[in-house]
């Protein structure tokens, strides 16, 4: 087990080098000058030169790259060209918002999708099954950003029921930082007004992001449950007189979980892409929005920093999936 984890972690190194090389070369090929964008139209040539000097942009590309990787090993992602703050600091500031959004959506989509999938498998061919099928076709064809805009039109522009941007109303103060997730922190602080406001702000973005995984999860749960429902141990469990609930959730679901988790892990990249779009639509101050911001301003240290974190997360989630196999299914322990 430990060997597996270590080997996988070592395999990450060439991967991260790959990302940084590709992006480093590409960003330095582009004709636009990030320094000019950062300093604006009115900057004097001296200012531009001074800032280029400060960022050490005049040294050859390979030297810059070596320096970058050297810093990266120490956990230093360099400084943002725009905000002039360390990229790590920026990412840390924006990350909790993304975490809050994605966690909420993962929990919500699992809570809805897994029972739906089970119910579709048990009632194969009946209306629940049909509904799950139609739902999955719809969500697979729905552009994330359009779904977000539609919800904004219905719940914000037309009815005014829910806010369409930011994490809190402007007149409220965010809770003291514990995790950086407003709902959690405000609950710990016992501030119900802030909690409910944060929750209200969370509803639409979380719903949009859940849309990405919900149907797929339901579909995989269905087919995976269909596979195990015919197995001998399910028949035995039923014959023993266990309640249907216990048969489905304890005996069948636990065995059906491996494919469900695999697919969920594989779809994590989609979830990240979805988070970028969702955060853009709802002005949600997470790392996805930070990435889009840095792209617009060709802030490449920030952009590469984001790409490194995204790749790392993606790889770690997939490693986590492999570890979970071993936890769920003893036969898969290496």
């Amino acid at each position: 087990m430990v060997v597996l984890v270590v080997r996988r972690l070592i395999a990450l190194i060439p991967l991260l080098l790959g990302v940084t090389v590709v992006l480093f070369v590409l960003t330095h090929l582009l004709p636009a000058d990030p320094v000019r964008v950062a300093l604006g139209q009115d900057a004097t040539p001296e200012q531009v030169r001074a800032y280029r000097e400060e960022l050490q942009l005049n040294t050859p590309l390979w030297q810059q790259y070596i320096r970058y990787v050297g810093n990266l090993i120490r956990g230093d992602f360099g400084k943002s060209i725009i905000s002039r703050r360390p990229v790590v600091q920026d990412l840390r500031a924006f990350f909790p918002a993304t975490l809050e959004l994605t966690l909420t959506s993962i929990i919500f989509s699992s809570v809805v999708a897994i029972p739906l999938g089970i119910s579709a498998a048990v009632n194969r061919g009946r209306w629940v099954d049909r509904l799950a099928q139609i739902l999955s076709l719809f969500t697979a064809s729905m552009p994330v950003f359009w779904f977000g805009v539609l919800l904004q039109i219905i719940f914000y522009a037309r009815s005014g029921w829910l806010p369409a941007a930011d994490r809190l109303d402007a007149d409220l103060t965010p809770p003291a930082t514990i995790t950086g997730m407003y709902t959690f922190d405000s609950l710990v602080a016992g501030d119900t007004a802030v909690f409910f406001n944060a929750l209200k702000h969370l509803v639409l973005p979380a719903l949009v992001l859940s849309n990405i995984n919900l149907a797929i999860l339901a579909r995989i749960t269905r087919s995976s449950m269909l596979d195990v429902l015919g197995e001998g141990y399910v028949v035995t469990a039923r014959a023993k007189g266990l309640s249907e609930r216990r048969v489905l959730y304890r005996h069948a679901l636990e065995n059906a979980l491996v494919p469900i988790i695999t697919i969920a892990g594989m779809r994590f990249g989609d979830l990240m892409a979805g988070a970028i779009l969702t955060e853009t639509i709802f002005s949600w101050p997470g790392i996805g929005r930070y990435a889009v911001f840095s792209i617009e301003r060709i802030d490449y240290p920030a952009l590469i920093g984001f790409a490194v974190v995204a790749t790392l997360l993606y790889a770690l989630v997939n490693l986590g999936v492999d570890i979970m196999y071993a936890v769920i299914d003893p036969r898969m322990r290496p």
């Binding site: 790959g18 590409l26 582009l30 990249g269 989609d270 990435a291 790409a307 993606y314």
Partner: peptide
């Protein structure tokens, strides 16, 4: 393997950003 390890849209975004 290397290129499959990236999330598709994220990488595409970064590359377009770099190319303009």
């Amino acid at each position: 393997d290397l290129s499959l390890a990236f999330p598709l849209l994220v990488l595409a975004m970064a590359i377009v950003a770099a190319l303009g």
